[in-house]
Computed example of a mutant assay.
Amino acid sequence: MADEGNIISNLDLGAADGPVANGEDTAPAIGIISQYVKDLSVENPNAPESYQWEDAPQVQVDFNIGARNLGPDIHEIELKINVTSKGAQGTAFIIELAYCGLIAMRNIPEDQAHPFLFAEGPRILFPFARRIVADAVRDAGYPPLMLEPIDFTGLYMQQIEARQAESVGEPAGNA
């Protein structure tokens, strides 16, 4: 009878690979532990003169996503955003932000962990980083800069396809 109870509890937990020993949790789980600003730099090199410039500035936004393993089941995702606003008279402002999230991942296969760390995790962090950038630009004396939403999954897929194309195009040996 004890075995029947074990099988029923496994079915209730959704375990498909057999009995769960002593209540061990083998279900996949991902959660955000915390989010934080790792680095924030605001440069306003030509203030207050830049507030009088009439030419529309060119705004360049660069993104970089990094992830690293901090220990068993803990990862850090780092979303770097660099914004530079330049006009004919010079640089109006530069904002550099490194915004991070600590992610707990348990029982996630690598083929699913990698897309989460480099696509889904940054998608979750982006709205918070976007607000920090907008506030930093506003605090520098300019109208808030609202960054457009980013398709992190699309970018991730493009990177994967580019890497696969590079590996296919490499010569197999010396000719």
Rank of each mutant, 00 (worst) to 15 (best):
T153H: 04
E148H: 07
A2L: 06
A67N: 07
S41C: 02
A162M: 09
G169P: 04
I8R: 13
A136F: 06
P48M: 07
E24M: 09
A104Q: 14
E110H: 04
N44W: 07
L102A: 11
F126K: 07
L145Y: 08
Y156D: 01
T91Q: 14
N44Q: 08
K86L: 01
L155Q: 12
S167D: 07
G173M: 10
P144E: 04
D55N: 15
A175Y: 11
V133M: 09
Q60H: 03
L145Q: 13
D12I: 15
D12L: 15
Q35R: 12
P109L: 06
L155N: 09
S85G: 06
I150D: 07
L97H: 08
I94D: 06
G141K: 09
R131A: 11
A56H: 00
F126W: 06
F128N: 13
S85I: 08
I65S: 03
G87D: 06
P48F: 13
F152M: 09
K38A: 05
V61F: 12
A134E: 02
Q164S: 04
A15R: 14
P48D: 12
P28M: 14
L117F: 06
D73R: 11
V137W: 05
N82R: 13
F93S: 03
Q158H: 10
M1F: 08
A172E: 15
F118L: 13
A134V: 03
G23L: 06
V37W: 04
Q159R: 15
K86G: 01
N82K: 12
P127Q: 13
P115V: 09
P19W: 04
E54S: 14
I103N: 11
F63E: 12
F128D: 12
K80C: 00
Q60G: 05
I7T: 09
P149I: 04
Y36W: 08
E148L: 12
S167P: 00
L70W: 10
H114P: 00
A2P: 00
G169S: 15
A104F: 14
L102D: 02
G141V: 03
C100K: 02
A140L: 07
F93R: 02
V20G: 02
F126H: 12
I94E: 10
G90T: 09
L145I: 06
G5D: 10
E110D: 15
L147P: 09
M157W: 00
A21D: 09
V61W: 13
V20E: 03
R163P: 01
H114D: 09
P28T: 11
N46K: 08
E78R: 15
G121V: 10
A29S: 13
R130Y: 02
P109T: 10
G18C: 03
V133H: 10
D111G: 02
Q158V: 07
D25E: 14
A88G: 03
A129H: 08
G90E: 07
G90A: 05
P72G: 12
G90L: 05
G71D: 08
